[in-house]
């Protein structure tokens, strides 16, 4: 299903942040903000909940630690208890380096895969862009023009975008939800 978007294009990130604050104050439903870099303060202005990615990172890491510890313990104490130079079968200090490495490995792979999946990114994914300049030096404040919006409301959004310093306002229809 095609969707129509209204985009206000700003030439500076601080202008975009204050515009979003202003729009939100007037109870306008900002759909998204597209920017060439991570804009400081934008999450707050948009009211985005904090990402839980680091929590997943902790869970993946802890899983890695547990797997590494239990595998080494099981292998050396019960599955194949070999005698290495008379050292104890359960030699915890010698397990620490591999436990650390495996923790880091699991946390980083897990977090990256979660990040890619949650953001719908994968090799070959093709998304239609609203404007090619958003990966260069422009910042887009995006509104979703759904059917229920009256022309009056749309005009009000346009007017608000203009008054908050948008350089350019354009409408674009994307074939798919982005």
């Amino acid at each position: 299903m095609s969707r129509k978007f209204l985009v206000g294009i700003y030439n500076d990130d601080e202008k975009a942040v204050s515009a979003v604050r202003e729009l939100k104050k007037n109870h306008m439903d900002v759909y998204d903000v597209i920017s060439p870099f991570a804009v400081h303060g934008m999450d707050d202005a948009l009211g985005l909940a904090e990402s839980r990615l680091h929590i997943t990172g902790f869970i993946y890491g802890a899983t890695g630690t547990a797997i590494a510890y239990s595998l080494m313990t099981w292998v050396f104490t019960s599955d194949w208890p070999l005698n290495f130079g008379g050292k104890p079968h359960y030699s915890f200090p010698a397990f620490i380096p591999i436990m650390f490495e495996f923790t880091v490995l699991c946390a980083s792979i897990g977090m990256t895969v979660t990040f890619l999946l949650r953001s719908g990114l994968f090799p070959g994914r093709i998304r239609e862009t609203l404007d090619d300049r958003f990966t260069d030096d422009k910042f887009g404040v995006v509104f979703h023009l759904h059917k229920n919006l009256s022309q009056q409301e749309i005009d009000k959004i346009k007017q608000m975008l203009q008054s908050t310093g948008a350089e350019e306002i354009k409408e674009k229809e994307l074939a798919k939800h982005y």
Binding site: D32, V33, I34, S35, P36, F37, A38, V39, M42, D43, L46, L48, S51, L53, H54, M111, T112, F115, L116, R118, S119, G120, L121, F122, P123, G124, R125, I126, R127, T129, L130, F134, T135, Y178
Partner: peptide, 17 residues
């Protein structure tokens, strides 16, 4: 580029990662 567009939520996760 994996279909990156620079959406605010994507940037937030990207920063966290």
């Amino acid at each position: 580029s994996f279909g990156w567009i620079g959406s605010a939520k994507h940037w937030q996760r990207h920063e966290a990662l």
